[in-house]
Simulated scan of single mutants.
Amino acid sequence: MAIAWERFLTQVQDRGEYATTRDAEQVTRAVLATLGAHLVGAERKELAEHVPPQCRPLLMVPVPATRPLSPHEFVEAVAVLIEGATSETARWDAGAVLSTLADTTGDDLVHRILTQLPPGYALLFGRAELA
């Protein structure tokens, strides 16, 4: 069952220490849109079932990425979508959203998602990187 939009945003706002819910919404939309382009198959569909309905279109982007992004490139792609963001703030933003996402979906799905992504993403999801 999906978490409510307001609750999800409140968790992102708390983790990211954002001043407003609007700020939390902006970073959530940027991070999930970037992530959605890099997931495929059952994991993307299952993830979409765990997020608020407002997030589903972001994850189910019709055009997949042409190549996998390294965690650094992912953060840079997020920074482009957030007005005034830097690499450092975008890394913070990605961590706030992805760790909230990980906590709402559970370890099994997070593990399957991480296997689709290049090494180094676990920390953005608030998880230890396993060798």
Score class of each variant (00 low, 15 high):
M1N: 10
A2K: 08
I3G: 00
W5R: 09
W5Q: 04
R7H: 11
F8I: 05
F8P: 03
L9K: 04
L9S: 03
Q11D: 12
Q11E: 15
V12A: 06
V12C: 04
Q13I: 01
Q13P: 02
D14L: 15
R15T: 07
R15W: 00
Y18P: 01
Y18Q: 03
A19Q: 14
T21P: 00
T21H: 05
R22L: 11
D23V: 00
E25W: 02
Q26G: 00
R29W: 08
R29S: 02
A30C: 09
A30R: 05
G36E: 01
A37E: 14
H38F: 13
L39A: 07
L39E: 08
V40Y: 11
V40P: 00
V40R: 15
A42K: 13
E43Q: 10
E43H: 08
R44Y: 05
R44S: 06
R44M: 14
K45L: 15
A48C: 13
E49A: 15
E49K: 13
V51D: 00
P52E: 06
P53N: 06
P53H: 07
P53L: 06
C55N: 09
C55H: 03
C55T: 09
C55K: 01
R56E: 14
P57N: 03
L59E: 05
V61S: 12
V61K: 00
V63W: 13
V63T: 15
P64K: 14
T66Q: 13
T66N: 12
R67N: 11
P68N: 05
P68E: 05
L69D: 08
L69Q: 14
H72F: 08
F74T: 11
V75E: 09
V75I: 15
V80K: 09
L81N: 08
L81I: 00
L81M: 14
G84E: 02
G84M: 02
A85Q: 02
A85P: 03
T86M: 13
S87N: 12
S87W: 09
E88H: 10
E88M: 10
A90S: 06
R91S: 07
R91H: 11
D93G: 01
A94H: 02
G95I: 01
A96W: 04
V97K: 11
V97M: 02
T100E: 01
T100D: 06
D103W: 01
G106R: 13
D107Q: 07
D108W: 04
D108M: 09
V110F: 02
L117N: 03
P119T: 06
G120R: 06
Y121A: 10
A122V: 06
L123I: 12
L124H: 07
L124T: 05
F125Y: 15
G126S: 10
E129V: 10
